[in-house]
Amino acid sequence: MNEAAGAKPTRSLGSILRSRPFLAFAVVALVWIVAGFTMRGFGAYGHLRYLIELSAVIGLVAAGQTFVVVTGGIDLSVGAIITVSAVGLPLFTWQADPTGLSAIVATLAMASAIGLVNGAGVAFLRVHPMIMTLAMATFLQGLLIIIAGGSAVSVQNELVQWLGNARPAGIPAGILLWLVISAATLWVMHATPFGARLFALGANPIAAQLSGVPVIATTIAVYAVCGFTSGLAGVLLLGMNGQGYVGIGDPYLLTSIAAVVLGGTSILGGSGTYAGTIPGAILLVTITALITVVNASPGWRSILFGALILALLLLSGREAARR
């Protein structure tokens, strides 16, 4: 027996100050303040609002990714699902529906179905999540080349354009969408039995199974949710961008995982919160914005971005050793 006792996790002010979501928010605030004073135009309200609008896309993908990672899995097909949604949506256009809502619903259903297949592969066939979702990504990329070829498709859908450009009450619709999804994600994770099952599954799958957690249904559900939020991100991205093209979702694979881990969610599963992923997403967009200012070629910017993510992850503390 180990007589050593862990620290008492009481909800004191100190423990909140030391919590990962708070720390991540503090880092974002610090970077914004320093950059705001040193760089012209960075601190302008419009610019900061734009950064959060960009973060919304990462935030949506990372919401699904957080669900998956908490259960001890990983979804490497989110980039491909975003692309499929952004390129596929214009294909779902029906004359009978001038609002464009049906196209969005059809796109999200397709994205969720892709996630469902991911989940079924992981749960029933017991394929490792990395292999399953990577294979799915490759499959989707092939499909895209056949359907879309190399050309970009422009969006005609009014609702999608509204989502990408409208500002009800001065707040971009994308940010409002992110707020709604964030609230739902936090509620499901921390206030429902389903959320408790996710953490149990991630912390100890054997004990979870023996405690009656419906492992297969839960696994399929999280990958379907991840497909859904990735599809939502694809729709939003299409609206903001005006057109969809093959490769549009690629940057969001690494950033969604980085946002989850930066926010303090264990990559091994079993602990964490979406409350940390939110500042993680904002931090990543901020870094991208800062790098863009640096006068360097796209190649060097990418190298810098990759190196910075790695450095941030190392700084944010490595996974505590598990027995």
Partner: peptide, 17 residues
């Protein structure tokens, strides 16, 4: 048991399931 989770969560897990 889920060692990294609280005693309360451990006790409630079959109910959550």
């Amino acid at each position: 048991l889920h060692l990294i989770h609280s005693i309360l969560t451990n006790i409630m897990l079959p109910t959550f399931s």
